[in-house]
């Protein structure tokens, strides 16, 4: 498979992901925060996005692993093997939850919002990048 084909494929899959985020309403931080605001302006939309994505991926992965001994463009699947539930996992998830709760932005929600013309998204993503770089040293 040529490199150009792989890059075009990744671009189109990224586009499908971004469109899903946009149509699902997940590029809108207010909508995310309202999902978690059970005691206030509750908006259950996020559960439809996560539920739809999870069920589709659950079925999709099973079909892929049953039918394809290896992925179409690569010699082997590259899947995380760790089963360790440790302080890093819990601590990292806790920090993420605090940041998600105060901003309404997660990485997958913010990236597709970058071309929508809102400066807030760029501020968040710039800080996110710094956070990831710092996180490498922790």
């Amino acid at each position: 498979m040529t490199q150009q084909t792989k890059l075009l494929s990744a671009f189109l899959i990224g586009g499908l992901f971004g469109l899903g985020i946009l149509i699902g309403g997940m590029a809108n931080p207010a909508k995310i925060m309202n999902f978690f605001d059970l005691a206030g302006t509750f908006d259950p939309s996020l559960i439809f996005v996560m539920g739809g994505a999870l069920v589709t991926t659950f079925i999709g992965y099973r079909v892929v692993f049953a039918r394809l001994p290896q992925p179409a463009f690569e010699p082997a699947y590259d899947i995380p093997q760790s089963r360790l539930i440790d302080a890093r996992l819990i601590g990292g998830a806790t920090l993420f939850g605090i940041g998600w709760g105060i901003t309404g932005f997660c990485p997958g929600g913010a990236i597709p919002g970058l071309a929508l013309g809102h400066a807030d998204v760029w501020v968040f993503v710039a800080a996110l990048v710094v956070g990831v770089l710092v996180g490498r040293r922790v």
Binding site: L95, G99, T103, D120, G131, L133, V134, G135
Partner: peptide, 15 residues
Amino acid sequence: LVIGGLIVGLGVKIG
């Protein structure tokens, strides 16, 4: 937004 972005970046990398 700035603090939240930093915390999210740190958290998702560590986690």
